[in-house]
Design a binder for these strands. Structure first.
Length: 406
RNA sequence: GCCAAGGUGGCAGAAUGGUUAAUGCGGCGGACUGCAGAUCCGCUUCCUGGGGGUUCGAUUCCCUCCCUUGGCUCCA
């Protein structure tokens, strides 16, 4: 059955494209590794984890790429603070980041390319962009100016930025001197900062080129599904898409999906605001299952309001639910809640995930099962129905990543 | 200012034209228990942002206003 996902570009739920005998390609923008993962990262990668789990459970093979941005100004700044090289800091933070995602039981991507290993490919993109004649020099930087495109060709933001670029005091746009939508292609830079030989001397390629180069090299463009947090839509996904449009005359991806950001105290969780919760802290507090249960509780494409109270309640509910189900699955006397019920639950879960990963509705099936078990005084599975029920529960576990059985 | 996504009870969140608007959490009361925890049972009146419109009937469709959040070159 086709998985429906809400495509950011068309703003509607569309079937995930795939062809028989060809794996579906999934490219997810990974982290810049200068610091640890927080629960906002967790929810984003959890979203793509569910996409992948569901597709694989439906028998569709997936090639999943998550890049690691391991050179960038912020890494340099942090490395200088700590007296480390950018490479060492990035390696250390990457390891910690991946360890935390793994602890949340997020399936490891099949490919995890590091930006620094793709500089030749990025440099090639620089050359190809230069040939378009749309790259101009500004001091030590080279910038690409995308053509003005009709609405609907790239994300609306860009067209509107171009159309409504007004310089007004007190408003953040535009910050630079350049045209709307312009982005960095190459910047001159010397060691110890990350630098390589390029078309205009020693320097470093622009961030937006990274995902284009990697996705093109590893998966081939356009990829079937591309995404990241909604804060990446502009400028990052806009710019990647511009590169693809300029060099290939077609978009970067068939569909773009953007899980909603995690907010706390009414604003986006981010380091600069100092309102973030490290993933490790949350995991230590309630464990991977309860944290998953909490984060999956609201529709993944919508923003998520984090609160310690919410986490505590979700953890309590999960513990209760899991205890109930485990008691029921234990071999024992026959009860009225049998195979049919578990099969119904598994089918309901499957259908709800298919319709735009409606994890919040998945809750209802598990809650209903739990309530039905509690309403049954004997509360155990008939002996003959154990294996079918266990299979149904296993299916739910596989699709949601929640671990119900002991 | 422009673009985008949202606004349902204390919280999370169902339900897209039709009886008293699910469900769970939380809260309160009770059973059980030496106490606590766990578990179970019961209760939880008051909730669809405001205003218009369409309709026999609107959470649902249309218009408008208000509010919140994100983005506007570091962002998951």
């Amino acid at each position: 059955m086709d998985l429906l996902l809400r495509d950011t570009f068309s703003a509607r739920a569309v079937p995930v494209p795939h062809r028989a005998r060809r794996p579906l390609t999934l490219y997810v923008c990974g982290p810049t590794v200068y610091d640890g993962a927080h629960v906002g990262h967790a929810r984003t990668y959890l979203f793509f984890d569910l996409v992948r789990r569901h597709l694989e459970a439906e028998g569709i093979p997936v090639r999943h790429v998550m890049n690691v941005t391991n050179f960038e100004d912020k890494i340099d700044a942090r490395a200088a603070e700590l007296g480390l090289s950018w490479r060492d800091l990035a390696l250390r933070e990457e390891a910690g980041f991946l360890r935390d995602l793994h602890a949340l039981r997020i399936l490891p991507p099949h490919y995890r390319p590091r930006a620094s290993d793709y500089v030749p490919q990025m440099t090639e993109v620089v050359r190809r962009l230069a040939k378009t004649g749309r790259v101009r020099r500004q001091g030590a930087e080279w910038l690409y100016t995308p053509p003005v495109r009709p609405r609907g060709v790239n994300f609306a933001t860009a067209a509107d930025l171009a159309a409504h670029a007004v310089r007004e005091p007190g408003h953040p746009f535009p910050l630079g001197d350049g045209a709307a939508g312009e982005f960095l292609v190459w910047k001159l830079q010397d060691p110890p900062r990350p630098s390589w030989e390029g078309p205009w001397g020693r320097g470093t390629p622009g961030w937006h080129l990274e995902c284009y180069a990697m996705a093109n090299d590893i998966l081939g463009l356009p990829v079937d599904i591309h995404g990241g947090g909604t804060d990446l839509i502009f400028p990052h996904h806009y710019a990647e898409n511009e590169i693809a449009l300029a060099l290939d005359r077609r978009p970067f991806a068939k569909i773009f999906v953007h899980p909603g950001l995690v907010l706390w105290d009414g604003s986006k969780m981010s380091k600069s605001r100092g309102n973030l919760v490290p993933l490790r802290t949350a995991l230590r507090e309630v464990g991977p299952d309860a944290l998953r249960w909490y984060l999956l509780g609201s529709p993944l494409t919508e923003r998520f309001h984090w609160s310690p109270e919410g986490l505590r309640r979700a953890a309590g509910e999960w513990a209760h639910l899991r205890r109930t189900l485990q008691g029921w699955l234990r071999p024992g006397a026959a009860g009225r809640v049998g195979r049919l019920r578990a099969r119904e639950v598994a089918d309901g879960v499957r259908l709800d995930l298919t319709a735009d990963l409606a994890t919040d509705r998945v809750y209802d099936h598990l809650r209903a099962l739990s309530v039905a078990i509690e309403a049954d005084p004997s509360g155990h599975l008939p002996r003959g129905e154990r294996s079918a029920t266990l299979a149904a529960i296993r299916d739910v576990e596989r699709r949601t990543g929640l671990r119900i059985r002991p």
